[in-house]
Design a protein around this nucleic acid. Sequence first.
RNA 1: GCCGGAGUGGUGAAACGGUAUACACGCAGCGUUCAGAACGCUGUAUCCGAAAGGGUGUGGAGGUUCGAUUCCUCUCUCCGGCACCA
Length: 863
Amino acid sequence: MNSDKQGYDPSSIEQKWQAIWEENKTFSPDLKNAKNPYYTLMMFPYPSAEGLHVGNMYAFTGADVHGRFMRMKGKDVFEPIGLDGFGIHSENYALKVGKHPVEQAKVSEKNFYRQLRATGNAYDWTRILETYDPDYYRWTQWLFVQMFKKGLAYRKKAQVNWCPSDKTVLADEQVIDGRCERDGSIVEKKDLEQWFFKITEYADALLNGLSQIDWPEKIKIAQRNWIGKKVGINIKYKVEGHEEIIEVFTTRPDTNFGATFIALAPENPLALKLAAGENKKDVERYINVFKKSTDQERKEEGREKTGFFTGAYAINDLTGYKMPIWVSDFVLMEFGTGAVVGVPGHDRRDFEFAQEFGLEVIRVVVGKDGDSSPIKTVEQVQEEEGKMVNSDFLNGMDVHEATEKIMDYMEGKGYGKREANYHLRDWLISRQRYWGPPIPMIYCSNCAEKGKGEREDMPGWHSVPEDQLPVLLPDVEDWRPQGEGTSPLANHPEFYETKCPSCGSEAKRETDVSDTFLDSSWYYLRYLSIQKDPAFAKASAGEGKKYEKSTEFRSDLMPYDIEIVKKWCPAKIYIGGAEHSVLHLLYVRFVAMVLHDLNSSLALPFQEPFPKFFAHGLIVKDGAKMSKSRGNVVIPDKYIEKFGADTVRLYLMFLGQFSDGGDFRDTGIEGMFRFVRRIWNLFENKKFEQVSPETLRMINKTVKEVTRDIEDFSYNTAIAKLMEFYNFISEESNSWSGETAVSYLKLFAPFAPHVTEEIWEKMQTVYGLQSTAKKAVVGSQKAVSVHFQPWPTFEEKYLVQDQVLIPIQINGKRRGEIVVGSEKSEVRSWIEEKAKEAVRNHLEGKEVRKVVYVQGKIINFVV
RNA sequence: GCCGGAGUGGUGAAACGGUAUACACGCAGCGUUCAGAACGCUGUAUCCGAAAGGGUGUGGAGGUUCGAUUCCUCUCUCCGGCACCA
């Protein structure tokens, strides 16, 4: 082989093509007229920290390969990108580097877009968006207003999660093991009045929708668990000597004949009401200690049960048993009714509690082990299936049957009512921070006094009229978090002082901002609706009236172009990380469902925005997720500079399965660079000739396999097959034709878009292959690009080999092989004879009892 | 504790129930070179053997099958998610 090595210069090639693509709007589809819309969406990045890291690049490249492939398959691919730049991530980074978030956003934006351009992804650069752009967050606020108008946004004083270092409240989804999702500080409880979204109203819809979408099972399971629907019964118990009724939720009413106590959550108001005399003091003290504790302390592993007796008793109607009523912190106020009925024989926690305080244990179920003795140890606690005992009319039934029977019975007697409970809580949406969209609400005390308001159930509250949006985030100097349960904006009368939209009197704006996850809950709709046409911009600035006459969509009047949305949505594929399984991926579904239920022309025609989701793997470094605090963030820039984006893309995609991710190390990246350069040299040096049958077979095989692998997101094996073809064709003795070269180049194009584009161009001008290159018309420009060429096809007839290798096994062990003409492989008896001969020495003295022959594949002798 | 996923060469990793280790990295030898870099060629699971050849091998133990990395049961280890949710 010729050892020419100077030719390939990635940086000049890549810069050249990135500029050409962007200038010609090569990858900006005509959203209105596209014939085969294919919306491929990638989760947009948080542009915080020091820049795009290789983990981001890995994810984005994988998504881009898919998009490029679909484009060559004839789809009009829309592949947008933007920045999720509002929110605590970015603000915390600004805090760290001591810069104003507005300033930092400008720096990050520039840097991220530079990096994103350098990766060579086929983004539509005419439709980028940033969540902190008033043109965007205006509509995030609009979304909030819709939530309010539909009764889905409300205020509630509640004990909420408070992160002391971020100095804001957090949603349940953002608390992991009692710690803040972002910085790991222990979350405290705080009584604050906050804005919530009623995601619980969509709990069943969110649950049921899961069965209709093509998502990884583990994400569906995570969402199912998070929603946590439990079907059971609310049972009412009378309290001896009191008017009060205690209501408990249970999924195991079948065991109710074994109920021996009641436990109340410390927050349950009944606890203090029922406690009397000496007991009252203890209960009060217990509740006070509880209030000061953190969730972390309360839920600590293996902690002994604590609690106090209130002195009161509830009556179990089934048995007449006087159940002592206790208060204990193992009972959660947020779940069910904040009270449980204790059946210590058949619930571990109840047993532990009963042991601690000497309460009676009654067995009512006998399990598989047949143990029917009194339950004395934790190991004996019977939580599984079994047969009922000591339970009157339930005796002998299995637990499932008994559960239905007893619920029917209780409902009939009026003791209780069937009920479903959910783990899912309403979405706490307000944040006491600066860097987010101000919540577009106004509170008027004048209206409040009169009991008036936009909504009957929320006197005094009005949403900001839609034509007054956005409520601009003011550029203030004291933007740092306060820590007093208010946002920095609460110090700015010039921001919050306003007039009531209803009565006109002095009123106050909400000063909290909304959660970052609201920003990202609808961005896919805005991508489709961005208008950056200069004529339009002028018109919307009041300098022209051209647009007013038309009924066309205007991005300054509407959040999204519903006609375009109908054409392109739901997105064909959504690609992103699985770490958002119960955060973003739940919220985005919820918001789509709400928008689907809008009572306006903007109502979405679908409920599930992403019928197909692909979860890419995570790139870690030294076994740990990349993060600034660990100091293991790898930025791709220096690798791109040294080897070119094509090499880095290939290298990342070759690491392993796209769904697996992996540990990043740069050993081997040079090997990939050598491969790209070899391809370059191959096209420079190898002459096109008559194609041989072997080459024809090889290229057809490669087309077949690479196509299948890309369809399966098995990029690493696709690249391996491209290498195999190279190894084959680089042999001096194997010739190729221009047509073969074209096919090969196309297969390579999604992975290495720049070098293939350069070679493609040369093939037309220098190598004189004009005829094979079809011109692609893109936008208003004519672009001749390999990325718009039809994907190569293969024909089965070329895949047939005239010689086949048949391995010979004896008792399943490989002992030899024969090479036969493929037409001969059909003749079983002949193959059998040949094979026997080939492994004669192994068969000597043995009796062949059975022969298994899989035509053209393998032959096995059983001896 | 519960629910997922994964354990294959020195390394990243391949294998519709049919030749285990494709492809690459690394390493070794050779060629090219004054020399190095780069490039090219050859070899590279492991054990016995000079070789031919043979034995053993996909975390471990069983099972189904003519044949198992692949399917089933049990078990160990690692990684992710959830967790005092009644």
